[in-house]
Nucleic acid binder design. Sequence first.
RNA 1: GUGAGUGUAGCUCAAUUGGUUAGAGCACUCGGUUGUGGUCCGAGCGGUUGCCGGUUCAACCCCGGUCACUCACCCCA
Length: 507
Amino acid sequence: MPRPRKIKDEKEQSKEKRPRGAKKEINSVTGMRDILPQDQKYWQAVIRTVEKVALDYGFGRIDTPILELAEVFNRGVGKQTDIIEKEMFSFIDQGGDNLALRPEGTAPIIRSYIQHGMLNQSQPVKLFYVGPMFRHDRPQSGRYRQFYQLGFEAIGEDNPTLDAQMILMGYNCLNDLGIEAIIQVNSIGCPTCREEYKKALVKYYKTKVKGLCESCKNRLNKNPLRLLDCKEEGCQEAKEGAPQILDYLDDDCKKHFMKVLEYLDELDLPYALNPTIVRGLDYYNKTIFEFWSADDSEGRVALGGGGRYDGLVALLGGRDDVPSCGLALGIDRIVAKLREKDIKVPDPTQPDVFVAQLGEAAKKKAMTLYERLRKKNIKVSQAFYKDGLKPQLELANKLKVKFTLILGQKEFGEGTIILRDMEGGIQEIIDFNKIETEVIKRLEKYQDQEGITVLEENSDGEPAAAKKYKREAATDRDTSENDQSSFNYKDDSPETAGDDYFDNAGG
RNA sequence: GUGAGUGUAGCUCAAUUGGUUAGAGCACUCGGUUGUGGUCCGAGCGGUUGCCGGUUCAACCCCGGUCACUCACCCCA
């Protein structure tokens, strides 16, 4: 089929007239990506789940600025770490300050802890955060230059129950989302015993140096602890007889670590003692841990990790003795895992009911009906800007609503409304004034049939979301104050509770 | 920073060893008459084949450069 030549020529001409360069697409910056509307549900599911855990364990949310003085990280994270040495987005601003986009969340929180005198509150101060972090690394799978982390920090307490509870919380977050995690635990002792160990390690590896790979020869000087997790064959062999950190822990560190393990055993958590895990930030000491997904043994990337950082407050200019520990989870990696495993998450944008209208008078009435339904917390959608019934039903179909309410001239005159079941196409004429209760009644029926969500299934003792939905939907409450923006998910808002109801395919 | 691979429509992919006007499915828009979606049928929209240059009568295809993406290393969430 020949194309209409003329039109094409005209188009091409107009393209040529366009100034050079104007046509060039502008894309997002390397390693940074858009989270599109259809993907938001994953982020929201993660954040909501974690907010629930935070609430359960008494952690309050804190938001610190994305920009900090670079010094916060230079001092906090450690100048020799890769994060600071080559991955930090930093610049001098117009006022001459050396600023940095935060590469991690803990140091800023400690800065805030000191700045606001939180050491005068009852200790530990338990904080929780979510937000973007930035590292100028080469992107690859599960690694971005802007990535999202969330985490917990318990500041001002040395007790090993906190270490165990941190691990428990991380595990619970993943588990509630339907991800089976394996916990890797280690202790790297305090700076004193770690130094002793490093010396022993270097001494040992120097006898094996000819069998090591090139990068390990480097590590020997730069970061000896890393020698232990090299995958090269020769290095693996050399590792066999290497000294173990646990043998070098002093009494205090050893006792502390044993207690942590004892609690983990008591809580029946699936952990593995892994003397080869080493964290990349300088501030860690004693207990450290990572969360790996149970289903990928090879090429594992940690979904999260954390540990104790007893010296950080002092490093940032606070008091000397403020022992603390924390945990961070990588949201991008968790989301990738949810998708990989095809775990269904609730979609808060999924409506149940569509209001269709025909004719000006009916349209007006439909607009107020929409408001009435919305205030009853029924998830409702519309297209008042469209006129024909056909396009409205098409949209209703695309939105996968369960029911469409059709209000035409005829119904408007009679004081009725049509309730159409979208699955079978069966229609009923209902008294307009009774429509809300009729809709609620029918939605409840769906809930009884369809049941449970991923989120509910895994959190114990929570009331069934479906019931919650019923209860909320039956109460007439104005929801206008509910902020539904991402990263601000109110767990017990009526709408949120209702979301759970939509997800069922995964259960 | 190092190494490898890949760039064709919004998405997933075609295009015979370099040869007419670069195709298909999905998606999107409009039809198949009156107030009814999904399925079906028809039509339409959508590409200077990432960009720049070179070789050739002729380049989506070959060569060079560049950019982007992907994967791996380093490291990390």
